[in-house]
Design a protein around this nucleic acid. Sequence first.
DNA 1: CTGAAAGCGCTTACAG
DNA 2: CTGAAAGCGCTTACAG
Lengths: 392, 392
Amino acid sequence: MHAGLFYFRCAFTAAGKRLVKHSIKMENGCEITLSLYCECRFFQLETRSISMRAKPTSFDIAHMAGVSQSTVSRALRNSPLVNKETRDKIQAIAQELNYKVDKNASNLRQQQSRTIALLLFEDPTTDDSKINPFFLSMLGSITRACAAEGYDLLVSFQQLSDNWHADYEDTNKADGLILLGYGDYVDYQDKLHQLQDQNTHFVLWGAVDPNRPGISISCDNFRGGYKVTQHLIRQGRKCFGFIGTADHHYPEFFERFKGHSVALEQAGYQHQPLKLDAISSEEAGKAALNQLLEQQPHIDAVVCASDTIALGVMEALKERGYAVPEDVAVVGYDNILLSNYVSPKLTTVQQDTTAAGEMLVKTVVKMIREEPVEDVILPAEVIVRESCGNTG
Amino acid sequence: MHAGLFYFRCAFTAAGKRLVKHSIKMENGCEITLSLYCECRFFQLETRSISMRAKPTSFDIAHMAGVSQSTVSRALRNSPLVNKETRDKIQAIAQELNYKVDKNASNLRQQQSRTIALLLFEDPTTDDSKINPFFLSMLGSITRACAAEGYDLLVSFQQLSDNWHADYEDTNKADGLILLGYGDYVDYQDKLHQLQDQNTHFVLWGAVDPNRPGISISCDNFRGGYKVTQHLIRQGRKCFGFIGTADHHYPEFFERFKGHSVALEQAGYQHQPLKLDAISSEEAGKAALNQLLEQQPHIDAVVCASDTIALGVMEALKERGYAVPEDVAVVGYDNILLSNYVSPKLTTVQQDTTAAGEMLVKTVVKMIREEPVEDVILPAEVIVRESCGNTG
DNA sequence: CTGAAAGCGCTTACAG
DNA sequence: CTGAAAGCGCTTACAG
């Protein structure tokens, strides 16, 4: 005869019962088939510990606690509706079984995902294997801020050409989007408008442009460019060049350039500021510097729209035999980790990535909650190091 | 009289119909309430473009296409069962409405999530705001590899003390886990065992240790340590020190150290290799170097278990007036971006992060599909730069 | 305070 | 090739 427990894998029927079939071969050759409804599928083999156990569900907990499944659900969500004793008992059982609420079911029911998607995109020309180090440092603070708000973070690298504008929130994979990228603003303007039309919750990192759709968080690019240029002027630099594509395609760079120009103007510079285009890459920086020197060989200060550009500029200057900062001062923007290690150490403008990450997350969470939000401009701080010639 | 379309917000009843109620106040004061069942809730206001539209569902598409919802589902999944014409029509409608399959529903039904969770963890002593740059570079390749396999990536920074061991897969948020971290292996060994007991699909980055539970992907830490030491010996270095906590708590560092020791032994070194503990931080590297110099002031080569440590070591050497590489050669491990920018440029061991990211993702995907998997050891390559004194 | 029931939006076995 | 139906595992309005 058979004795002991049998292990059944079975399916719930509609009412939360499960139909179970199990056949037993008897020693005399007979075969008995059991068909039964049972209320709990969470059996455990006691004799062997083959752990083929399916994951426990709230129905299993309910059965063990002798309450209804609704009560289990309430108890696990700490609803004040349920009796403290019952609640404690249910939670204890859940813990013991290592029960975890199924997020798909819970999200489906609640029509939310408690997830924020971070979409990183860059100019397609950028080397595919490298990510702008500035974004990477934002990533850390965004992840932490998400965790603090109780959201998960879905990360995705996008090409500007991708269909990112219509995927994450529509799929219910995320409740909101954070868009982080350097890139041609004009290229994706349409997509941003589409996001807005769809009432997607999204927040942008970048220039606060009144015509730009949606909400953006940024550092004060204008004042950053202004202050760093002012510093160079005080150091006695006379002949300036700005490197970085600064027009409405790249509004962040444009703001930095505007700050730069105003600083020069206020210092009494007569002529139009010199400006060379470059996207945020070392190669582009090198190429632009070489052009700059052709136009103006007596340059003694180069303001770069990003640290990555500045790295290329310093390299190119060295190759051409210029000493930094003796002959030419160079300043960057972003304060990436590298900028403090290159030689000479790079003077740059710090964007507070911790504050930025927090603001991005907080803002998108507010949007999800349908609370009012507004653009934020965080302060920018000049970090004086060696490449500008004076640490005073 | 009223004319035109009304906008109804309504709920499906069980059969996929929706019960709608709408009251209209007539001019004579009467009020008419309409109660009706309708089959499609995806109405659009034609006169105004207030886009309060709810997201379309497969039922809406079905209604518009004049087919059943099952057929819509099949068509959108490109099932060969459905007639090509019907399929094209359905897909066209879906596209026009910008319909997207709800992932929560689809995942719930299919009991999978098509998501991989990446859990990054570090020693709690590490500065909270900085992430090891090596991980950051892995992150990029993992993200891309996930996308290539059709998986989403959930990112989470963990403390070793957190309850990460039992959260992601149990919650159905992810089908599999990638664990990435430097940290005390002994501390989380228990958790790894628990993961394994739960049949969680997880893959580790790190040392391939036969006693370690689960599958791991790693670079050949032994050969890396061996080869870089051999290079220094060929350069004529005589008096070696190794910096990094190399014991069973940190199996990766331990392997590197073993390679280092064997290289010395083969070169005929008699005495026990000198070894100082340090976790992977600049501060720890500095502190360890200072200790090392007290024990052995005539050191002329320092092998570091990570680039981050090497950075601290170089800094400390400079502070103490030693020239790198003239007085002391320094080598690191990881080839982080910075290592190519510091002065002198750091000789290091490259771990192929692109290949590593791909292997991690491919392996965890195989586990999810219940296919056989095995440990992988990727080759390690010495990158000779300036800090070891010779580029030959 | 608790339970029975409906429903979130899909996928897929089953029956034509 | 197509449709009706069940069911994934929850949450929550409704009724006691």
